[in-house]
Nucleic acid binder design. Structure first.
Lengths: 183, 183
DNA sequence: TCACTCATGTAAGTTGTTACATGATTCC
DNA sequence: GGAATCATGTAACAACTTACATGAGTGA
């Protein structure tokens, strides 16, 4: 029990709409899966495990003779999702978790994500500062060689990613402000 | 022989500077590893494999009694790096590969990356259009519920990432223009 | 001498990928 | 009747993570 992120992403997706494994695999290409990708094998496996854990259950429809399991989230699954969403993830995958948590907040109500977003902002500001330091040290000269320009372009990708995250996060902060968890 | 990306990232790093596995692991937090992360176990394993393949070799220094293997790239390793850099990767990890390829271009000369960057731009433009479609369909109303605003924020992350990549790519294009591979 | 960094590795367990395998339903 | 889509799964392999394990050199 460590990462668990795919399971939680699936829980959010199933809360939004009870579905078959197949539909989840399709849906994962869109909605929640702007950033997440999961193969159907992975999804079926995780679905099986979550059913064993009592987080979800399936109504097995045998329409005609075709087997079809429509999964939905049980109370234990909701509880687990809330627990996960409220335990901070400051790892390198924390940003992706945060996006899933935002969708979780949308579907099951205020989870008190403001603090985690603030910490994320601080981390990205710190990382940006590191990149800026490298930029000043290695690429502030007015005439760079071609090789240096290419290296600078790679660094600039890092800088732009950090700035872009910060810009987004600043937009999101007001949406979470003074919406601490009450449950 | 499929992904191979970590190996190639290590080749680039070793071309830039012959190093021990330990130093590479450190360095990976910075320079090439703005986007790449690799644990030291992973690095030692890949180093061992590349040495078996004859791509790299180590001078084993026994200064005093401390064992220390400084790896450097052999001709076969250079050849492999060029081959990889010139075979397009249009997968979901293609963007990261492209960044490594830029550094490869910086260290071993023109690799003809312009076409791959152009295809990358087209892919991101197409993806952006898909997101814009969802935006128009689901979030164009002037008054969104709080839940919808959160869902929109998640979508906006996707949109901003695509726009940001495109902005960066447009900056990089001139650096690659009319520098087709000659070797 | 004690803590920290440098340095390399093994082992176990978990995840993720690729290939294989099957069969019903729907639409042309 | 045939192709595409819906639908679920197994098996083998590859990759990655976490924990364990060791030991020399450096500086306070």
């Amino acid at each position: 029990m460590r990462g668990m992120s795919i399971q939680h992403a699936l829980l959010v997706s199933l809360l939004e709409k009870p579905s078959t494994g197949y539909a989840l695999a399709r849906r994962f290409d869109r909605s929640i899966g702007y950033f997440w990708q999961a193969s159907h094998q992975q999804i079926y496996r995780e679905l099986g495990r979550m059913a064993e854990s009592g987080w979800i259950a399936a109504e097995q429809e045998n329409g005609g003779k075709r087997l079809r399991k429509v999964y939905h989230v049980l109370q234990a699954g909701r509880d687990e999702l809330v627990r996960w969403a409220q335990s901070p993830d400051d790892s390198d995958k924390g940003d992706q978790s945060l996006l899933v948590k935002l969708r979780a907040d949308a579907v099951i109500g205020p989870l008190g994500l403001e603090d985690e977003l603030r910490r994320s902002i601080e981390r990205h500001q710190a990382q940006l500062e590191i990149y800026r330091g490298i930029e000043r040290r290695d690429f502030s000269s007015p005439d760079l060689s071609h090789a240096q320009e290419l290296q600078y372009a790679v660094l600039r990708r890092g800088i732009m990613l950090e700035e872009n995250w910060l810009e987004w996060a600043q937009q999101v902060l007001p949406l979470l402000r003074s919406r601490k968890a009450t449950a």
